[in-house]
Simulated scan of single mutants.
Amino acid sequence: MPWMTPLHRDPAFYQLLSDSYTRLLGVPLVPQPMSAADAAEWLYEHAPFAVLAHNTDPDPVFIYGNKAAQRRFEYSWDEITRLPSRLSAEAPNREERQQFLARVERLGYEAGYKGVRVTQSGRRFMIEEATLWQLLDEQGKLHGQAVVIPRTRDL
C-alpha cells in the first residue's frame, strides 16, 4: 500500500491502524465514532496516549508516531519516521523487546506489556500497559506492527 500523504494525515492509514486494532482486540482505537479523517487527526494531534507503528523491513523503521509519542520519545515527525524501532530501547533491553515482538507475530496482539524505553536524549522511562498488534489489512497482508502506550513513568 503506497502512502502518498504523510501517514499522520492519511485516512487510509488510520483505517489500517483502527480496523486491525478493532478486529484483533474487539474494541475501538478512538473513544467515539467520527469520520476517518477526523479520527486520524484526533489520534495524531490530541490522543492522550502514544501510538507508534513500524514497517516490515528486516530492521523495522517507525512509519508513524503521534504527537504524544513524539513528545515522550523526544523526536519530531521527520526524526521518528526515520528511526529504526529497535533504537527506542536500550541495547540491554532489545532482546526482551524482540521476544515480545515475536509473540505478537504469533498471536496477532499482546496487551499489558511493560518495558524500559529511551528518549532521543538518553533518558530512560517505563512504558506500562502497552498493547502491540499486527497491522493486517482486510486481505490479511501484514504492513507492520503498532503499539498503544497508555502510560509511562520516568526512571
Rank of each mutant, 00 (worst) to 15 (best):
P48I: 02
K67Y: 07
S20L: 03
Y64P: 06
G108A: 05
V147W: 06
T56P: 04
P60T: 05
S35E: 09
F62I: 04
K67H: 10
S85I: 14
L135Q: 09
Y113F: 14
F62H: 12
I80D: 01
A111M: 10
V148A: 02
T152I: 11
L24G: 03
F73Q: 01
D78H: 14
R23P: 07
Y21A: 01
L16S: 03
L25S: 06
E96Q: 09
M1H: 15
E138S: 13
A69K: 03
F13W: 12
R123V: 11
S76N: 08
L132Q: 01
A36P: 10
L107F: 12
E74A: 09
I80E: 01
R94K: 09
T22K: 13
M1C: 07
S88H: 11
A12I: 09
E105N: 02
I149Y: 02
G112R: 08
Q139V: 02
G112P: 02
L135R: 01
T119N: 04
T119M: 07
A39F: 11
L7E: 10
Q99N: 13
S18T: 07
R86I: 14
P31Y: 00
K141N: 13
E79Y: 13
L17S: 00
Y109N: 01
T131I: 05
Q139S: 13
W77R: 07
S88E: 03
G26T: 11
E79R: 13
P33N: 11
T56C: 07
A111V: 11
E129A: 15
L83Q: 14
Y113L: 06
T56N: 13
H54Y: 03
A146F: 10
E128I: 15
V104E: 11
L155N: 01
F125V: 01
P92C: 03
R97Q: 08
P48H: 04
Q70S: 09
R124I: 01
